[in-house]
Design a protein around this nucleic acid. Structure first.
Lengths: 112, 112
DNA sequence: GATATAGTTCGATAGTCATAGAACATTCGA
DNA sequence: TCGAATGTTCTATGACTATCGAACTATATC
């Protein structure tokens, strides 16, 4: 049961986080994660891209420090590192998520 | 005296803004602008890149809606569209600027 | 063991991006 | 008018990126 490396809070970098959030597919994924209380299967979140592409995006999000990924059985469970990001960049994630709520282009993605 | 097109508040897009902010050179530029009360000459802000590169970055920032650029004589004056961004994405710019203050990689750029 | 499920990795591709130098445009001073 | 100052545009380049399909890995189920 392979697990993946995650940056520590110290290693989380502002420009990496902003870059990770600047892709519509990734931003939509983060938005969906934020609305859930528990860990989510990657495949449970609707997206218009191939699963190999999604795997790539999840890697970018994980390496930026935004999400935590844990494999269990055949599935890989993701969760938002909300508290850690909030501690490091106060208000940032909340502001982005609030802004994403209004963004039609992002919302449209979750309906595909 | 050529002037440049700017997106209206309606046209400002979240992912474009995040992308514009995700480059260290641009984020540093925005951070410097935010600290000033008045418009700034492009060249007045220290950066480690060539002026043609800076011109490119300023274009990206302008097209994203983050800054306003106005030419006057031989110089081009830039200012942050703080209020408009705040109205569109409440708290976002403030959170990013606050986070950038702590980011050593960004601060280092302004000392070059 | 065979098959299905859930993701990952690999290889390829087309596109974007940051970068710089050279040439150019425009304006201001001497 | 001739330079100097300040940026912009053009072109090129190397790096990175989003995308996909195919092959693969690992686990679960029958």
């Amino acid at each position: 049961m392979k697990q993946y490396p995650h940056p520590t809070a110290d290693q989380i970098n502002l420009t990496c986080v902003l870059h990770a959030l600047s892709d519509p597919v990734r931003l939509n994924f983060v938005r969906c994660l934020a609305e859930q209380l528990c860990e989510q299967r990657c495949g449970a979140i609707p997206t218009p891209v191939a699963k190999s592409t999604m795997s790539h995006h999840i890697r970018v999000l994980r390496e930026s420090g935004l999400i935590r990924v844990r494999t269990e059985g055949t599935q890989s469970l993701t969760s938002l590192r909300k508290d850690e990001i909030e501690a490091k960049f106060p208000g940032l994630l909340a502001a982005v998520l609030e802004a994403a709520k209004e963004d039609e282009a992002i919302i449209a993605l979750s309906e595909k």
